[in-house]
């Protein structure tokens, strides 16, 4: 029963996330590039997306850590790494370059697959290859 509820929760959360991406404009690479293009016709609206998302998640997380037990699982699973290390900085730098080049980050790239757009498919396949390449050959070695 709880296993089914967990799956239903994930489905609903994924849907809210994808709908949020679509409504906010983050789904649109042209809008993302306009946000990153600070010397051009700068579009600041993605700051509001991030701001609203962080504030709402902050409240949700505060409640979750106060209760300290998720409804459908035994305990909260939080990231264990706390050190600002080389893989974090190098990996984030590489990600930023790719994000700037095409305007796609992982969430929007996957969500827009359902719209059947070829550029999203090409990007997503390359992204999957990049992920597998890292995890198979380089995880923990850099």
């Amino acid at each position: 029963m709880t296993a089914a509820m967990r799956i239903l929760t994930s489905l609903a959360a994924g849907l809210l996330f994808g709908l949020g991406l679509a409504i906010s404009g983050l789904l649109n690479p042209a809008k993302v590039k306009a946000f990153l293009d600070i010397t051009g016709a700068w579009d600041p609206s993605l700051i509001f997306v991030l701001g609203a998302g962080v504030v709402v998640a902050f409240i949700g997380y505060r409640i979750a850590s106060a209760i300290n037990k998720p409804l459908f699982d035994d305990k909260l699973q939080l990231p264990t790494k706390t050190r600002i290390d080389r893989p974090l900085i190098i990996g984030s730098s590489i990600f930023g370059v790719g994000w700037g080049l095409a305007g796609f980050c992982p969430g929007p790239a996957i969500a827009s697959l359902s719209l059947g757009l070829l550029p999203a498919v090409i990007f997503a396949v390359a992204m999957f290859i990049g992920m597998v390449t890292h995890d198979r050959f380089l995880a923990g070695k850099v």
Partner: peptide
């Protein structure tokens, strides 16, 4: 871009 985003993230 896709390769960089996948690898980097």
């Amino acid at each position: 871009a896709g390769l960089l985003v996948g690898f980097g993230t």
